[in-house]
Nucleic acid binder design. Structure first.
Lengths: 353, 353
DNA sequence: CTGTTAGCGCTTTCAT
DNA sequence: ATGAAAGCGCTAACAG
């Protein structure tokens, strides 16, 4: 019995069982071309020595690492966390390992980790890119023949499989809802339009206004970082106006949190003074744990809830079809609709139980 | 210029630049023992061919993969997500890649992924184990000489570095708080004691009662799964009694959610009819985004908030000291205190603004 | 059914 | 400062 079985190689097993390394290789790879007796003799030696085959060596030899990369801008954001969970699950079931990379919405870091994943010879990548500026990095992946699938954000000029939410349609529904409640001065807070979701949601917002015959007011569209701080700052700007909006559509839940904070800090009320709608929910507990039927805390935000985990599972499945399947025709875009959840922040159910 | 640079090897670069592969190796490894002229000639060839060295081959040769594993029972649970974020960050800065594994609280799956990580020759593992029953799997790691650090949960009989919360002390503070508010029939809902945190929190609960001279009532200690469903079922059992508790300490936030749901479903109120305290917060948004100074939603649960992200960063740092540093003396246990946040669910600030 | 040979792409060791 | 040889642990390809 060896001290540290990590150092036990296929040769040691071969020696102990009196066969060639190749036969051992056949045994550990479930090949049928091994006689039952030798097989059991080899298996005996394997367990005696505590042998665990090195995937590293196998990967080098087979030119397949059995590894994929999962790249997200912020693991801690529950939206992306769910994507991670879904992707990890599908990958493991397919016998693959997942290298996780958090880019922190940093393009430079994203470039670095992508380079690193190439060096690691991952067989494919599932990525929620930082922005359109990620394009050059993805082109690099393509150059290296590394298959990848885009999640949540598409990038003009990049033809590849993608799993996206229906940003335009979702935004239209949210804004039309506000309009149906009588609002006409509806603002939007979003990040700069180098992110497809921001762009598409803005398009949906514009569409809804146009269909309702409400003339667009460019000053009601505010740019800010896509986080609570951005929401706060953006909302403060809107509140400083004489003709402040009666309703606000924010690009996501985090921006909404900051914006609502600004409203309350100004001594105003949601939804009475300003109504809110946004993408993505903040009621994570109820989302993560389906057991929680009657959620004890009354949810407040009216949202377009996206099936984040499905983004991850579906995206990873598409990736594996590329990796393992035959050469596929063209890029496949999957667009998943969200769930429209009407709650209090929009004013429709104001002051409900 | 090659079609697919992934196939470009050190040999190709050597050939093009007219040197030996060894010299190329020296260049890509920043060795100083290369003349400036050859260096630049090699670098030229590298960029011309689009050569990216294979970490796989390097790993096999050097017997170091530059990879660690991060194993958690549920990535989507924000507590563990924060650990993941912290660990990933520290690992990347140290030049390591992270293989993420989600065990879903499943011992069998945990055993599988650990086996897999051994096969991958990860240099170390940061793990939040499923329970004490993970012991045999960790022993296996030890046998293979793979360093590992325990996060959040310790395991009797396993001597290794660990980063833990102060479960006993935290529980005592929470329960003493309930006692100071006049409660004497205080229940506890927890999972079975094969998990160190459950065990330690039960000890803290018992200590608090004893110090206050309150005779322990074993029937007030309810076992259930450590999720909302468990909380619901456990609480229903407690509510079915004639002498139902006036306060409940749940082992974590998720159990509290389910329990509170049960209370409300029974037509009772929190904290008026039943007061609550627990470990871990559910106000993730405020936790994840420090910008959010004035959290717009009024937090409700009185909790012992644990510094989850620090669990991850610290644990990973300890791991690297083991991996890179000289052979270290003995196991190091880091115990981090939590933040005691008094809010409404305990009744101390009932019906505050 | 089993073994031999020749790598996979890099690095170590020892020369020069 | 550079190179040749050998090998990391495994497997594809071809024997037999």
């Amino acid at each position: 019995v060896n001290e540290n079985p990590t150092n036990v190689t296929i040769k040691d097993v071969a020696r102990l069982s009196g066969v060639s390394p190749m036969t051992v290789s056949r045994v550990i790879n479930q090949s049928q071309r091994v006689s039952p007796v030798t097989r059991s003799r080899v298996e005996q030696a394997i367990s005696e020595l505590g042998y665990v085959p090195s995937r590293l060596a196998r990967g080098l030899s087979r030119q397949k690492t059995g590894t994929i990369a999962l790249i997200v801008p912020d693991v801690a954001n529950p939206f992306f966390t769910l994507i991670v969970r879904g992707a990890e699950d599908v990958a493991r079931r397919a016998g693959y390992r997942v290298l996780l990379c958090d880019t922190r919405f940093d393009l430079t870091l994203e470039a670095e980790v992508i380079e690193d994943m190439i060096a690691h010879r991952v067989e494919g990548i599932v990525i929620a890119p930082v922005s359109d500026a990620s394009r050059s990095q993805l082109k690099r992946l393509a150059k290296f023949g590394v298959p990848f699938v885009l999640i949540d954000r598409s990038i003009p000029g990049i033809e590849c499989d993608a799993v996206l939410g229906d940003s335009t349609g979702g935004a239209r529904i949210l804004v039309e809802h506000l309009i149906s409640l009588g609002h006409r001065r509806i603002a939007m807070i979003l990040e700069d339009e180098s992110v497809s979701t921001a762009r598409d949601r803005l398009a949906g917002y514009a569409e809804a206004l146009e269909r309702a015959g409400i003339p667009p007011d460019p000053t009601l569209v505010v740019r800010a970082t896509a986080d609570p701080h951005g929401g706060l700052v953006g909302m403060e700007a809107l509140l400083g106006r004489d003709d402040r909006p009666t309703a606000v559509f924010t690009v996501n839940n985090l921006v909404a949190l900051g914006a609502i904070e600004a409203v309350r800090a100004a001594g105003l009320e949601v939804p009475d003074d300003v109504a809110f709608v946004c993408f993505d929910d903040i009621e994570y507990a109820s989302l993560l744990y389906p057991f929680l039927r009657l959620y004890p805390f009354h949810p407040f935000l009216t949202v377009m809830l996206q099936p984040a985990e499905t983004f991850g599972t579906l995206g990873t499945q598409l990736l594996f079809e590329r990796i393992e399947g035959p050469r596929l025709e063209r890029a496949r875009k999957v667009v998943l609709p969200g769930d429209f959840l009407v709650r209090e922040s929009c004013g429709a159910n104001a002051h409900a139980a």
